[in-house]
Design a protein around this nucleic acid. Structure first.
Length: 511
RNA sequence: GGUCCGUUCGUCUAGGGGUUAGGACGCAUCCCUUUCACGGAUGAAACACGGGUUCGAUUCCCGUACGGACUACCA
């Protein structure tokens, strides 16, 4: 397993998984598959206060929906378990102690009030960035300033404490990011981050280094919001003696708001009326509800394809990629550096492309499902015919029903604008004749026979069919636009067609 | 404020010292269509700004501006 690529997606179960998180998971997955490696899922639940019940299942279900299942996870453990940080609690202590022993960490006893007072004091003194660092730690209560015996007695008396990393005063920390190249920061801009919290849990910083090391992670692919703390992580690897096996980093560009600027957020989804979460979700604590792509009618393949192109491209002009094709084409050096604005139109376009690739039968299944909710039933054969004529004009599977309902339900109202423009005596004459001729027509009506009869009916009255076509459509469907009329006639069948024409003749005349 | 990251059509992006700066979404026009849509064609639309380097910068370097992330005992 020495050269095997191992990557992880490490979400925090604090609510619904944001679309940006799904993209991070996807890139990790693609990278792992591309290199024949493993994709792991690790739950980062070191903050017990923020734990939200159901969030883990949400993460699992989301990945499952788009078909990127981890090779190792809490539900499918490999050899590096547990895969939930809360269950690894006992493992972190020894590394914190090692750091303590090596002088790279220290105990701190400051209360939150004292910390706050320190920040205020610094702010008042016009210190630009108040932080716990090589300068301020000398004035705080920690094992660097307190006499050894006092530290010992505080520890023994059970006084709460944290363990902080001791950031060196003057040092350059550099890392070679796979998407950004060399990034360098001075240690004096870093602060003495807490490594172990007073509740005995590690913070993200310690936990992710320890776990990545123990789990043999070779590449860390994560959001750009982690870039500022990456130098801290480098230092941690160094102090823990793991620098030689330190994973490579790739920090992904952020997903931004569609308008203006800033990180894409829940508010944007509400404001623009489109989802930014894979699945809909109701927060059990706040009762807050968010919409999901799945429920909005996005197909998983389309969603995945759309997501893959948010910050990455294959370098040629192809746009439609199956997962397999993505795996084949994916590479980290084709990931862009700049933030990506979220454009729902593109997502819709992808959905249309994938929808049209589906067979009539698959589409009919969606239609049948919708009809069931309406307490309507129709034969599978008819559903397929409807799907066939509707698929070119649908964005979502639900459009099959919402845009094509006139194929199942006779119109009760007629579009007033079309009535005003197209309804006239000639139309009435042709329709009346057609209705009569239809009575004698042979039963299963086909698009061809329906058309031939309509043409002869019009001709017999000396009226050009083109002049009344729109009115005929109006009479039968109630509206002025839709799929090929003769196909609709075939789907409707002779009896229904006659019924509708008669109804229209009475209803519209009366109006 | 500080640190770090970024900046090619409205959006996603390709490209990269010499190009008519390419594609896609969206938009517009036309064709197809006895409607609408699909499809096809065409069009409008971009290198943030200022200095260098160079015979020549959109491309390399430095600034400026603008944007963003981070700045918790959250991840």
């Amino acid at each position: 397993m020495s050269n095997e690529v191992r990557v992880r997606f490490a979400p925090s179960p604090t609510g619904a998984l944001h679309i940006g998180g799904v993209r991070t998971a996807l890139y990790n997955y693609l990278f792992a598959r591309k290199h024949g490696g493993k994709f792991l899922l690790r739950i980062e639940d070191t903050d017990q206060n923020r734990y939200v019940p159901g969030a883990e299942d949400y993460i699992k279900d989301s990945l499952d929906w788009i078909g990127i299942n981890p090779d190792e996870s809490p539900w499918n453990p490999g050899d590096c378990g547990p895969y939930r940080q809360s269950e690894r609690k006992s493992m972190y202590r020894e590394y914190a102690e090692y750091l303590l022993e090596k002088g790279h960490a220290y105990y701190a006893f400051d209360t939150s009030e004292e910390l706050e007072a320190m920040r205020q004091r610094l702010t008042a003194a016009r210190v630009v960035s108040p932080q716990y660092n090589s300068i301020t730690r000398t004035q705080m209560k920690n094992s660097l300033t307190l006499p050894a015996d006092e530290v010992k007695s505080r520890l023994e008396s059970g006084e709460p404490y944290v363990i902080r990393i001791k950031i060196p005063r003057k040092e350059e920390v550099r890392l070679n990011d796979m998407v950004r190249g060399w990034v360098m920061v001075h240690s004096n801009s870093l602060d003495d981050k807490v490594l172990m919290k007073s509740d005995g849990m590690p913070t993200y910083h310690l936990a992710n280094i320890v776990d990545d090391h123990l789990m043999g992670i070779t590449h860390v692919i994560r959001g750009e919001e982690w870039l500022p703390s990456a130098p801290l992580h480098v230092l941690l690897y160094r102090y823990l003696g793991w620098e030689d096996s330190m994973p490579e980093f790739a920090h992904l560009p952020l997903l931004l708001k569609p308008d203006g600027n800033g990180k894409l957020s829940k508010r944007d989804a509400e404001k623009h009326g489109f989802p930014i979460f894979p699945l809909s979700w109701k927060d059990p604590n706040s009762g807050e509800w968010v919409a999901g792509f799945k429920e909005a009618g996005y197909l998983p393949d389309a969603f995945l394809n759309f997501l893959a192109f948010l910050g990455w491209n294959p370098g040629d002009q192809r746009e439609l990629f199956s997962v397999e094709a993505l795996v084949d084409a994916f590479s980290i050096d084709r990931i862009g550096k700049s933030g990506t604005k979220f454009d729902i139109n593109k997502a819709k376009w992808y959905n249309e492309q994938y929808l049209r690739k589906k067979s009539d039968k698959e589409l009919a299944a969606y239609l049948l499902e919708d009809l069931q909710k309406e307490n309507l039933s129709v034969s599978a054969e008819k559903a397929e015919k409807i799907a066939a004529v509707m698929k070119e004009r649908a964005t979502f599977p639900s459009d099959l029903w919402s845009e094509g309902r006139f194929m199942l339900l006779a119109p009760e109202e007629f579009d007033g604008q079309v009535v005003a423009k197209k309804w006239n005596q000639e139309a009435i004459t042709v329709l009346s004749a057609y209705s009569k001729n239809l009575q004698e027509a042979e039963a299963p009506l086909t698009a061809e026979s329906a058309k031939a009869l309509l043409e002869s009916s019009a001709e017999a009255e000396g009226i050009k069919l083109g002049k009344v076509m729109q009115a005929v459509r109006l009479a039968v469907t109630g509206v002025g636009a839709g799929p090929d009329l003769m196909q609709i006639f075939e789907i409707l069948g002779k009896e229904e067609l006659i019924k509708r024409i008669e109804f229209a003749l009475n209803k519209i005349d009366a109006a």
